[in-house]
Amino acid sequence: MAAGAKKSQTKKADPLLEAAVEYFSARSHDAWRKTLLRTNPEQKGQPRMRLRGGVMVDVNQPWATLHPKARADNMKAARDAYAAVRKFPNDREAASEEVHKSWIKRNAGDKSLAKELFKPYAKLSEVEKDKDRAHVDRMKAAIAAVRKQARPRKAKAAYKTVRVEAKHWARLEAAANKLTKLTGRPITPEALLAAGLDAILAVSGAVAAPKSKKA
């Protein structure tokens, strides 16, 4: 290898990142669209054209039918939000400012957007800041959700099998049939066996208990 040549290093995949991006993207877009239609009901059914990946696409669509270019942009926004949260895990405003900077980079070529949206974060209106804060909050929620899903579930309690000899089982069946006729209620051999075991355990516990001394 020639002197000074740099060795290429393969970055390790971050499973948390990919899971959080997947979780965040669809929910974030649909939440944004829900807010849009609630605050601007006249937008229902109307195209909202935005530049995404060099193509003008309608972003006023649910995630399921959103243009692939718009979906890709949303996932890029999710990665940017993830990076901001990882960089400033305990500083919501700093993370929100980082999200806004990333948004400016992604949308710099979109002439359809108002110029005031490209102001530095500190000069944005509270309404616009809240949009960046929402990205931070949703990403934190996404990370928490995927971490919870990744936790190993507790194993279910194992049950042991009790073997009963055929002759004893036949006696249990006969007793169960007799009790069923006497009581008019269905009683199974399994129920009798369980009751017998409970009785044995109760007697064993009573025998094993220490006797109280008299004064």
Rank of each mutant, 00 (worst) to 15 (best):
D137S: 07
F24W: 10
H135I: 00
Q61F: 03
A202H: 11
E126H: 04
F88V: 03
K211W: 11
H67F: 15
K178R: 03
A122N: 03
R33N: 01
E116Q: 09
S212K: 15
A114W: 01
W32G: 00
L66K: 02
Y159I: 07
K167V: 15
S212P: 04
D30T: 04
L197D: 05
Q9R: 15
A174L: 06
K76D: 14
K34E: 12
V127S: 10
A175C: 09
L193R: 14
G205V: 05
D91L: 02
R50N: 00
V57A: 04
D137W: 04
V57Y: 01
L197R: 13
I104F: 09
R50S: 05
W32K: 06
E116W: 13
L37K: 07
K7G: 04
D132G: 01
K12R: 12
S8E: 14
V146I: 00
Q43L: 12
Q46H: 01
P189Q: 15
R163F: 13
A94D: 00
Q43H: 15
E173A: 12
V207N: 10
N90V: 00
R79A: 02
A166T: 14
K119V: 02
A84V: 12
L51S: 06
T65M: 03
K44M: 02
G4F: 11
D137N: 13
P41Y: 11
A94M: 02
P68L: 08
T65G: 00
A64L: 11
K115H: 10
T188Q: 10
